[in-house]
Design a binder for these strands. Sequence first.
DNA 1: GATGAATGAGAGTTCATTCAT
DNA 2: AATGAATGAACTCTCATTCAT
Lengths: 207, 207, 207, 207
Amino acid sequence: MLSKGEGQVAMTPSGGLRADARRNRARILAAAGEVFAERGASAATEEVARRAGVAIGTVFRHFPTKDDLLRALMKDLLERLTEQVGRLAADGDPATALFDFFASLVEQAAARKSVVELLATAGTDVQVTAAVQSLRDGIARLLTRAQQAGAVRADVQAGEVMALLTSTGQGALQGGWDIELQARALAVIFAGLRAPAAAVRPASPRA
Amino acid sequence: MLSKGEGQVAMTPSGGLRADARRNRARILAAAGEVFAERGASAATEEVARRAGVAIGTVFRHFPTKDDLLRALMKDLLERLTEQVGRLAADGDPATALFDFFASLVEQAAARKSVVELLATAGTDVQVTAAVQSLRDGIARLLTRAQQAGAVRADVQAGEVMALLTSTGQGALQGGWDIELQARALAVIFAGLRAPAAAVRPASPRA
Amino acid sequence: MLSKGEGQVAMTPSGGLRADARRNRARILAAAGEVFAERGASAATEEVARRAGVAIGTVFRHFPTKDDLLRALMKDLLERLTEQVGRLAADGDPATALFDFFASLVEQAAARKSVVELLATAGTDVQVTAAVQSLRDGIARLLTRAQQAGAVRADVQAGEVMALLTSTGQGALQGGWDIELQARALAVIFAGLRAPAAAVRPASPRA
Amino acid sequence: MLSKGEGQVAMTPSGGLRADARRNRARILAAAGEVFAERGASAATEEVARRAGVAIGTVFRHFPTKDDLLRALMKDLLERLTEQVGRLAADGDPATALFDFFASLVEQAAARKSVVELLATAGTDVQVTAAVQSLRDGIARLLTRAQQAGAVRADVQAGEVMALLTSTGQGALQGGWDIELQARALAVIFAGLRAPAAAVRPASPRA
DNA sequence: GATGAATGAGAGTTCATTCAT
DNA sequence: AATGAATGAACTCTCATTCAT
């Protein structure tokens, strides 16, 4: 899944397209979102076409490869998340914005099946990498503000926040966490972000 | 992957089998471990056969379904982990055993590709469910002891420990965490387990 | 390729067309010539459109079927060849004109990929059949004159000249004959045309 | 068609295969011969499977790629031709063997559709190249003997004999030559091989 | 019991052709 | 008339599973 960087996106995602083409592109992305959410990334492209109400050829005209479709979906998702992060950085309470975002992502993941399955495969494609970077930047900003507000301890870095974010999302998704489990797991992580640096040994290679 | 509960394992895993049959079963499991670790659960069963040095028919005689093979692999893994937990509960330092185990799992996950991909899909099959339960029990024991030693705060439950365990493992795996990132992410979680209960709102449904 | 006779050419090739339409028709034919020459008759029609600088719909408006396009191309080619034959019949040296034409065709074939691939599929379409007939007539004239000049022996007929012409062209094309091989192969055929009728058995059905 | 050299033939064509596998392989090759003969190389592989009375998967197990099937077919054909040449070189009349073989090939080509379509695409694959070389060697031997018998003039080389052979075969095939046309065309070529070297200009680049 | 060839449903992808804009 | 998006049949290839040897 999500191999190489070939296949280039052949068209401006929302640029000079005919009205119907743009409509179809959106429909396909929406359908793909649903389908891959329900059935995982291995769902058939034909199902996406059916759900979008177009013929299979149309899907392939817009996304020459299944990979391209997956990539576009991921880019879309990342952009939406980045936007959300941006809003929180502007309006949100510095002390809670990071936690709110974290919680919201886990919640989404528990509902949709591929959100994080996709997030986890970043680094494949230029456009996607850029989108991931944007998200990471936004999160870094949330983090800094939370640290300035004293809500997160100073030595936490954006890297581990991202890492915990994606893995918790992934876990919520595949484990089918109920809302209470979500809350409890997040409580641990939030406490960990907030607590004064505990002197914990890193992974001890034996055990 | 790992669907339904059909296909029940058809033979006593180690019961009345001819010597060569038992040897083949072990070989296949080992090969499957490697192959699925390298290529993920979508790897071809034929590759497993090749790696095990048997014909494809032999694989299917032992595991009537690919799902059965995957389940058996999972059961195997869970048993090994449970054993490890048992040893830690007996010999380990109450204050650190839980952390050690957590760290060790994340580490394994970063190396092998399906360990947690499998763990995350628990709940499918009677035998597997039982194995999961054993592991959960072991972890609960580690947890209790850590709490008694004052290393983990009192209101943490085994559920979220398991949840964080699998999701962090999964994340380490798919995200390709380097050793430093592993350490930093674990530090957050460990701090969270140890810290006095922070007053954190659970997932706020909007955001 | 070049099936049936359906799809009849729907428009007067150069009749009452708007200026831009006529220009497009010419462009498309030129592009088709290049594309099919490079990639063979199985090249995609869309590539022809791209090369011609028009949209795919325009190609199909001018040539309702890919076959029609191929046929039109063939007719064009045959007309050009017929013209060439006509010039040779008027101005050329009776003793060498036939050989010159033969050589020139083989040469062209070695360079362009579909010239003879097309020639060889004659007989499909009224208009094309007519064009083939014209060419055959021209060649017959060259032949007669060569025979009168004593350069070709008397019992050779136009049929086998055409046949050798197309097959040698085809061969030169697909075999990638270099210029020396072309010369040697032609030398054999030319000698055969010129030689006094050898008493050769026709194809003996066994071997 | 017939691209690259990948796809390697994965199994000894007639070596250590199970009886049924060997039988199927032969059946598939035979069916492929017929199908491609009738419909050309662009015929569907599924039709080959149907004609051979096996499932499509079986075809792909024996020939992992359509190209592999085509290549195998070609190798087969070349081997049969080489054998025929060998027999003629041993038993045949030196003065007529070359002509007989030439005639026999043209005749076969007129009947089967892909014989020469394939021959013409030689040079693609190691195994095939070797087979072509064998055929060329056999023909060279026929040629030498014919020259020694005084039936072919001395300066003719094997290269142009092969070239004329394939192109005439191709032509007979695609042109649908009737038996009389075959005889007449061959008569020209045979006379050309036999005649004292005529002083013919090679292809004159204008005309 | 082991072997490995056969099966056949399905997946991704291409492309001639149609038709709304 | 031109455009170019949509269509959908067809094609090659994969792989879990069955079954004759």
